[in-house]
Amino acid sequence: MKLLRWILLPPVVLLAMVLAVANRSTVTFSLDPFDPETPALGIDVPLFLIVLVSVLFGILAGGFGAWAQARRKAARIKAAAPAGGGLPALRNADGD
């Protein structure tokens, strides 16, 4: 898994950096789907900022998903563990 991360992560980061440098022009980020010419909710921001914030949001969402999955797995393992929680107690030779 770590090898896959080292193979895939550098090209993705490099691509995001190239897109950020190549797209420095200002665009209108609109939250109004009904009027694209004069949006009610819209701001002018550089395109690279939208790209980098989107990548950051994706990283955070993926990290949160992995964290939540690890918590569920740990809880499942803990619930399946025996009640004693460890190795059985040793007994004396006379059966006590």
Rank of each mutant, 00 (worst) to 15 (best):
S30V: 01
G58M: 13
D96T: 15
G58P: 06
A66E: 14
I50A: 05
V12W: 01
T26G: 06
V13A: 07
F64I: 13
M1K: 11
W6L: 15
I77D: 13
S54Y: 02
D96A: 13
A61D: 11
L19V: 02
A61S: 13
S54A: 14
D94S: 00
G95A: 08
I77S: 10
L90S: 13
D35F: 00
F48T: 03
V55S: 09
I59V: 15
W67C: 08
A81V: 02
G58N: 14
P88E: 03
L14H: 06
L3R: 12
A93V: 10
L60G: 07
A75Y: 05
P39D: 00
L15Y: 10
T28K: 02
R72T: 11
L14F: 12
V45R: 01
D32C: 01
K2I: 11
L15P: 03
L47A: 12
V12Y: 00
P82I: 05
A70C: 04
L41N: 05
V51W: 05
G63M: 03
P11C: 00
V21L: 12
D44N: 11
A16K: 00
F48N: 08
V53M: 08
Q69A: 15
R24D: 09
P39M: 00
I50S: 03
V45A: 03
I77Q: 13
L9C: 06
L52V: 12
A93W: 14
A68K: 12
G86W: 13
G95M: 10
I7A: 08
S25T: 07
W6R: 10
F34S: 10
W67V: 10
A80Y: 02
L31G: 12
I43G: 04
V53A: 13
P10I: 07
A74W: 01
I59L: 15
M1I: 08
F64T: 10
Q69I: 13
D94L: 09
L52W: 14
A70L: 11
G95P: 05
P36I: 00
A74D: 08
L9M: 09
T38S: 05
D94H: 08
A70P: 05
L3W: 06
I43R: 08
A61M: 14
Q69L: 13
T38W: 06
L4M: 08
L56E: 12
A81Y: 00
A83K: 07
I7C: 04
G65E: 11
F48H: 09
F29Y: 05
R76Y: 02
F48L: 03
V45I: 06
P82T: 05
L90T: 10
F48E: 01
R76A: 15
N23K: 04
D96R: 15
S25W: 07
G65Y: 15
P46F: 01
L56C: 13
A75K: 15
V55I: 14
V18W: 13
T28W: 04
M1G: 11
P88Q: 11
V55Y: 01
N92W: 15
A93L: 15
D32N: 03
I59E: 09
G65V: 14
S30C: 04
W67N: 12
R72M: 08
L14S: 08
D96E: 11
A74S: 12
D44H: 13
L52K: 04
G84A: 06
K2A: 03
S25M: 06
F34E: 11
A93F: 15
G42L: 01
K73W: 10
P11V: 04
A61H: 13
L41K: 03
D96K: 14
F57R: 09
L56M: 14
T28M: 07
A83P: 09
K2P: 02
L9K: 00
L9S: 10
N92G: 09
